[in-house]
């Protein structure tokens, strides 16, 4: 049997995500951003909402999300994606509007926009990729950097006394009445990615039902910033990040999980 005989639609078990462009990802090999992009695009494709979806890209490693996601997107100033999305959702209430943001973007410079978009219960989806570091600018400390974790601006490790504790912004926004769905996921294994995809799907369903704000944190790796191999970074993430940022649903259908 020739190889070309095998490459047939009926034999296909895996294919490129339809709504991803052919542009080569600019992410470091092993980085979770690419998987998070794929899952988001799969959901939009499968729900058949491409024509009504508007994405908002952040400033961070995923600033170029619009190069990879084959959908209409606007690129927001650093931290301001929730404000940008607010206006789009308010002026186009029938559209699906989502932001895709890093932890520096969402939980440091954009804290005010995050809290207030959540508090107003904007009918949007926020996809929050928390890698505990500023990936794009070369590995500086983020609000989510763990205690003792080394970064280029905490070269002796994050010291709680002078630098504060890692910020659990996800738990914080879960307590706001306007927020309908809050979950923390990861995308580093197939099992986790499948769960994360379900969560993203639920979030966009919430938009369809005009339930208000859905907030999905994806705890992810930054192998370059953490100065590890991809595999090491995933193990380190499981052992350290998941302890402080435990995976699972935090608020479902407007009700906090106990």
């Amino acid at each position: 049997m020739e190889i070309l005989d095998i490459i047939q639609p009926e034999n296909q078990v895996f294919c490129k995500t339809k709504l991803m462009t052919d542009t080569a990802l600019s992410y470091c090999p092993g980085c979770g951003h690419g998987t998070a992009h794929n899952l988001t695009m799969e959901v939009i494709d499968e729900m058949g909402i491409l024509e009504d979806t508007i994405g908002v890209a952040p400033v961070g490693c995923s600033v170029l999300a619009y190069d990879f996601m084959n959908i209409d997107m606007t690129q927001a100033a650093h931290g301001r994606a929730p404000a940008v999305a607010t206006a789009i959702a308010r002026t186009w209430p029938e559209k699906y509007v989502f932001t895709y943001q890093g932890d520096g973007d969402l939980a440091a410079i954009g804290t005010a926009e995050t809290i207030h978009a959540c508090n107003r219960g904007e009918n949007i989806v926020i996809i929050f990729v928390n890698n505990g570091i500023y990936g794009m600018t070369g590995g500086q400390m983020a609000p989510t950097t763990l205690e003792g974790m080394i970064s280029s601006t905490s070269p002796y490790g994050r010291e709680i006394k002078s630098m504060g504790s890692p910020l659990k912004i996800t738990e914080l926004v879960a307590n706001l009445p306007g927020v309908y769905y809050v979950t923390r996921q990861s995308v580093h294994t197939h099992k986790h990615a499948r769960k994360a995809k379900k969560a993203i799907q639920k979030a966009f369903e919430n938009t369809r039902l005009k339930q208000g704000l859905s907030f999905i944190e994806i705890v992810s790796n930054c192998n370059s910033g953490w100065k590890m191999t991809p595999n090491e970074s995933n193990i380190w993430m499981e052992e350290n990040m998941f302890k402080y940022f435990p995976l699972g649903d935090i608020k479902v259908d407007g009700k906090l999980k106990q």
């Binding site: 606007t74 100033a77 301001r80 404000a83 206006a87 789009i88 308010r90 926009e113």
Partner: peptide, 15 residues
Amino acid sequence: IAAINMVYGAASTGK
């Protein structure tokens, strides 16, 4: 800051 970025969002959509 939020207001001008809301303007940016709505303007992005031709409003």
